[in-house]
């Protein structure tokens, strides 16, 4: 009876869209996520910061089902991600469950990872056509709308290698959006770009941040940008959230020594 109410509660819309419940992820003996508890509300824009190796990418990769977990439970929209329910029990999820859960998420990669053998437009239409079964004409129309949104309508028939890094990443964002995800995951989307190309990508992400319903999880070293667009900043250290809060609090008055040291190192790297 207790379980029944729990399940009903978990699907209510006021609950977090993402919830990590004591999640453990190990690579061999190396603990990367250490009983991580982490929640994201619907529509919330959260930025994850932290030193290299603290588990930032791993959090996103676990959510995108690219990396399985060792312990704990991840919930997306109240449903367990890496498990499925059998009666009151949680058993490891099979591929059909994972495919269903994946449809809620979209991911933007540091190295763009566009499909090199497809034109820009085809990069945007392939998954909607092949995975969602949308007809080609409709997928193209939607693809062109997305290209307009990222300012690349004139590049539709080019191949990825003919584009600049900034343009490729804008296609990467459009490609993820073409699947109409509820949650967008950005893993250092501008880290591989030349400095002069960072702005154009950040502008696209900024315009997405205005979308009320879209939940965003962003890993970045662009602190100024993070401060502008985030509802919350989470500072990760050694596989846990060391400190979190509103951007103005974290950036101006961090409480933890580790946070202070990290921010000092990234904000004035010359010292």
């Amino acid at each position: 009876m207790n379980n029944a109410t729990e399940i009903r509660d978990a699907t209510e819309s006021s609950d977090p869209i993402i919830k990590f419940d004591k999640v453990v992820k190990r690579f061999g003996d190396h603990v990367v996520l250490d009983e991580l508890d982490f929640e994201v509300q619907r529509g919330e824009k959260v930025t994850i910061i932290g030193p290299s190796g603290s588990g930032k990418s791993t959090v996103l990769r676990v959510l995108m089902t690219l990396e399985p977990i060792n312990d704990g439970v991840v919930y997306v929209g109240g449903e367990p991600l890496w498990h499925q329910r059998r009666g009151d029990e949680l058993i490891p999820a099979g591929e059909p469950h994972l495919r269903e859960m994946r449809s809620h998420m979209g991911m933007v990669f540091q190295q763009f990872n566009l499909f090199p053998h497809m034109t820009v437009l085809r990069n945007l239409t392939e998954a909607p056509v092949q995975v969602l079964g949308i007809n080609k004409a409709e997928a193209k129309k939607r693809g062109m709308e997305l290209l307009e949104m990222v300012g690349l309508t004139d590049q539709a028939d080019k191949y990825p290698h003919q584009l600049s890094g900034g343009q490729q990443q804008r296609v990467g964002i459009a490609r993820a959006l073409a699947m109409r995800p509820k949650v967008m995951l950005f893993d250092e989307p501008t880290s591989a770009l030349d400095p002069e190309l960072v702005g154009e990508v950040l502008n696209v992400i900024r315009s997405l941040a205005d979308e009320h319903d879209l939940t965003m999880l962003l890993v970045t070293h662009e602190m100024h940008f993070a401060r502008q667009v985030s509802d919350r900043i989470c500072f990760f250290d050694q596989g846990r959230i060391k400190e979190q809060g509103k951007p103005e609090d974290i950036f101006t008055a961090p409480k933890e020594e580790r946070t202070k040291a990290f921010l000092k190192a990234v904000l004035d790297p010359d010292d």
Binding site: L66, R99, N113
Partner: peptide, 25 residues
Amino acid sequence: REQYEAATALNFTGRKRLWRITLPQ
């Protein structure tokens, strides 16, 4: 490996990932 991951993130089935993403490359 990144191509495989991008295809997975877009929810391709294993078979379609092979025919549409991996083999053409």
